[in-house]
Design a protein around this nucleic acid. Structure first.
Lengths: 172, 172
DNA sequence: CCAAATTGTTTTAAGCCTAAAATGTTTCCT
DNA sequence: AGGAAACATTTTAGGCTTAAAACAATTTGG
């Protein structure tokens, strides 16, 4: 019969797990709900970007990163920020340079490094899309009160920290 | 100078938006944080599935849907549940039938419909993966208290409802 | 100095994913 | 019955994504 002591022993999660299979159904449900929310919103944003501006979500995301960096970013920077693979960025950038939204040049000081920036066209188009994008997001979250938003921010920060810790445990 | 009345007027978000450009920075930050959390966890799960079981996340997700439906599901059902396109499911199923994890047959009563089920092999492999998967999730969320989990569940349910409402507004 | 390790990027091979059009089947409506 | 609408799935064309290997340039440690 489980009691208060479980909560204390559980601080050391290794030892006990081997003995009795824990019930992690709540966390699993939470993960599925988190994933559902994100997928739902992401799909909605993707569709609106395509319909309104004929642009893909990854292209928009990449431009968003560059808009915050007037002096440009290296491909690695972008890859880390967007949390996607290096090779992914290479292809994305290629297409955006091709369409005239990005400017790519090799760093003067380190010939391995490629620095990319928004072109004038790229920046103008991004700003136009971003302002509309912001209203979509506001609308998607419209039923949350300011307090809800604050609380979600706090809990998601905690979630992110927890997940990063767990990831680091596995891959130190 | 903004005051209390803004909070009240804002209940009708349409009218005011046209006059003064609102500040939706908070919602935007929330969305980015939500996306970061999901991407982080999803990447971690994807990597572990690949390393431990040499299986992709979409394959695992599809098997998870079928595990909950002993009598099988139609491709449309799966597509709706997974929130992915029909064509996507077709290909995914094809590969899983090929590898012997799924059984696909045309419905007796409606020749348009394909019913898919886990095979014995598929179910066994899924169960094996799922139990380990559950511990990963628990570990990723380990720093959240039971209260945090409950609160996140509540707020994400509210978020989902809000987003669905917004999506329905656009596409009635 | 120079070989080894590290870093930044690209390439490769395979799979995932979408939107839209096409195909085949059933239902609905008169 | 018979044509139109609705439905389930597949196909198509193109883009996204990853992991791993390959390549190129720099840094590091004898």
């Amino acid at each position: 019969m489980p009691g208060v002591s479980d909560c204390i022993e559980m601080l050391d999660s290794e030892t006990k797990a081997a003995e009795t299979p824990e019930d992690h159904a709540e966390e699993l449900r939470l993960w599925l709900r988190l994933l559902t929310c994100t997928t739902l919103i992401e799909g909605e944003v993707r569709g609106r970007l395509r319909q309104r501006f004929d642009v893909t979500l990854p292209r928009f995301d990449l431009m968003a990163q560059l808009d915050k960096a007037p002096d440009g970013m290296t491909l690695s920077d972008v890859s880390k920020r967007m949390m996607v693979s290096n090779g992914n960025v290479t292809g994305l950038v290629e297409r955006l340079v091709e369409s005239g939204h990005l400017d790519r040049r090799t760093s003067e000081t380190d010939r391995r490094v490629q620095v990319i920036r928004l072109t004038k066209l790229g920046r103008a188009e991004f700003r136009r899309m971003a302002s509309e994008h912001e209203t979509w997001i506001a609308d998607l979250f419209a039923d949350l009160t300011p307090k809800d938003v604050r609380e979600l921010m706090r809990l998601l920060a905690k979630t992110k920290a927890s997940a990063q810790k767990s990831a680091a445990r596995r891959r130190p």
